[in-house]
């Protein structure tokens, strides 16, 4: 069974012939889908018709080359502000953040010397070398 399609819209607009109206009415009695579609069309139509009428400004009608379409300024402002804040954060954080962990030779030689003293391979030479590695005793 074929559905009514475009005939529904014409039916609502009162554009059908008596024979067509009769056929549509018979079809609607047996077809749930077309009934639902008709209800939706009718709801949409009444919603549109309930909107207030607005007068078009004369300048728009008379001088098409002077039409100004306003930008959604509020939305643009906040988006821009957020982007600017992010940029400022990145710059400030990059400046303030330490440039990595700063190590001195002692930071590594001291733990090495402490731990190696527990090893079976521990000898005076190792400790001496650790001491020298700090630079204090270098010749």
């Amino acid at each position: 069974m074929s559905h009514l399609g475009e005939l529904l819209s014409a039916h609502l607009d009162g554009e059908l012939s008596p024979a067509e109206r009769r056929r549509v009415a018979e079809h609607l009695e047996d077809c749930d889908r077309c009934r639902e579609e008709l209800d939706e069309l009718a709801s949409a139509r009444s919603a549109v018709r309930s909107l207030p009428m607005v007068e078009v400004p004369a300048s728009v009608l008379g001088l098409p080359d002077e039409v100004v379409v306003p930008l959604p300024r509020r939305k643009s402002f906040w988006a821009g502000a957020a982007a600017a804040a992010a940029a400022v954060f990145i710059v400030v954080a990059s400046i303030l953040a330490p440039d990595g962990t700063a190590l001195t030779p002692q930071d590594l030689s001291d733990p090495f010397g402490a731990r190696v003293s527990l090893d079976p391979g521990f000898t005076p030479t190792k400790v001496a070398q650790v001491r020298v590695a700090t630079g204090d005793f270098a010749e």
């Binding site: 330490p98 990595g100 962990t101 190590l103 030779p105 733990p111 090495f112 090893d119 391979g121």
Partner: peptide, 20 residues
């Protein structure tokens, strides 16, 4: 350690640099 020679290895999630 290999029982005679030894080393310590430091791993940092941050970049490391040497001040000397």
């Amino acid at each position: 350690s290999d029982g005679f020679f030894a080393f310590t290895l430091l791993h940092s999630r941050r970049p490391v640099r040497l001040e000397t």
